[in-house]
Design a protein around this nucleic acid. Structure first.
Lengths: 251, 251
DNA sequence: CGCTTGGTTGACTAATCTCAATATGGGTGG
DNA sequence: CCACCCATATTGAGATTAGTCAACCAAGCG
């Protein structure tokens, strides 16, 4: 599956030693001096317990957050209480990019399990970006990647049927877990059926039914939140046709 | 309707004299010297005829484009030919922000009427951004605003019914026309029913039927592409509950 | 160990899609 | 300038999908 999968969140490649993700620095080619400047800007990590808010829609935006460990959801809510989950984020991904536009956070970010994040103060990052062009460019790319991701979700929500959405969702998680060195075909869902449904534009019953259907077909095994992909190729066939056809650079 | 309406595209506030949108420069407070630097970077405008592609998904990304006149759609297509319109852009708005992430354009941009755009070479804009912090910051805001817009569309596609989507769509157009000094309640649609449907995640027949229903209720008058909002307040009530509840800064 | 929350399943309903027939208008070429 | 044609839009009827409501079950937690 391509890296810019419909559901992939922006991958963080700027983290540094403070975040114990030092290796991810190399791709953007910072030298030792620049690395230490970056280290100086990144604040010590913050711990959250399951269910805790990292930030809420409407709060002042000062920082982005890089996830070291844990699993998050972001969501926006409408006046009458409907909630739309806009994404699920895991370690190595970045939260809060939407806050830049208005200096207010545009969504809630909630930990779905105990988590640890690094805070990246935005103004210090941008001024550092002026000294380190590769860093600045990298930031633009991260934001742009989020736009691309969102548009793929629009494709999903606008064009795909329930089964296709679920299949795309499972394959996306699979791909992201495997990119982090976890098993691609055997993982634990961190979110409820309702949250999956909200993200995919489906009701929780439909999510549940569709998972059962996949299981009945022998494609997956569902044990509560424990999912095993037995025939991921069938899921891929299902999604195949409705994926984005754009040539993708794997940068 | 709030400025960060579900469907509002990023508004361009960086244009300058080359684009004959000089007044829009002031909000970000560039001085005379900075303005002329910006002018030097912006390329002469390019004209497109209706139906022409400004860029295509997969093409090398070198520039963003500011729309001077005309009306565009952006869309992504899936392997099996389904097309998702991801947005409609009008004068003063910016196209191409999604190309930064992979150095390839992520969508097609097609003129829905004869149009004129300014080209903003990306690398020159970013290096200028390093000299002019306000400009750099403004770019981050524009990209972030696009993320916020996309997420509102996700809310729309994930949670709203056909009537709510159409109402939100009409009100959004109304608000954007009026922001440009055109009539808020009397305008011409530049796009087909099918394109509206693709954007809203509906079939063209549903779009047509829903418009007819609004007309039967006396809320609007539909004459082909000519739309008049007679009772916009009823449309607002319809959308009211499902709008984003986030406190919005009007910056 | 019972309670609460989350998940599954079934029967029914409502919304939207699909297919099809029919209009309508704009554009083009004679 | 007009007539024709094609693309676009409207409307209807029936099929299909997903949503709703409700019952039941299982798990985790105090």
């Amino acid at each position: 599956m391509a890296e810019h999968n419909p559901l992939t969140a922006h991958t963080l490649k700027i983290s540094c030693s403070n975040c114990s993700l030092r290796e991810l620095c190399l791709p953007i080619g910072l030298n030792r001096e620049e690395m230490s400047q970056l280290d100086a800007v990144i604040r010590q990590s913050r711990r959250l317990k399951r269910g805790e808010y990292l930030f809420r829609a409407g709060e002042a935006f000062k920082s982005m957050f890089a996830i070291r460990t844990g699993f998050f959801k972001t969501c926006i809510s409408s006046h009458d209480g409907r909630e739309q989950v806009t994404g699920f984020q895991m370690s190595g991904e970045l939260l809060g990019l939407d806050g830049v536009s208005s200096s207010l956070h545009g969504c809630d970010a909630i930990a779905l399990e105990d988590a640890e994040v690094c805070e990246l103060p935005f103004s210090r990052m941008t001024s550092l970006g002026r000294d380190i062009p590769t860093l600045q460019h990298h930031f633009f790319r991260l934001m742009s990647r989020e736009i691309v991701r969102d548009q793929s979700v629009m494709l999903l929500l606008g064009n795909m049927k329930a089964e296709e959405r679920l299949a795309a969702f499972l394959l996306n998680l699979s791909q992201r877990f495997s990119a982090r060195g976890f098993a691609a075909n055997d993982f634990i869902l961190r979110m409820s059926r309702e949250e999956i449904g909200s993200f995919l534009g489906l009701k929780l019953e439909t999510v549940s039914r569709t998972l059962s259907k996949f299981q009945a077909q022998g494609w997956i095994i569902v044990e509560h939140k424990h999912i095993q992909l037995i025939q991921p190729e069938n899921l891929k066939t299902l999604v195949g046709g409705c994926q984005q056809s754009m040539p993708i650079a794997t940068t």
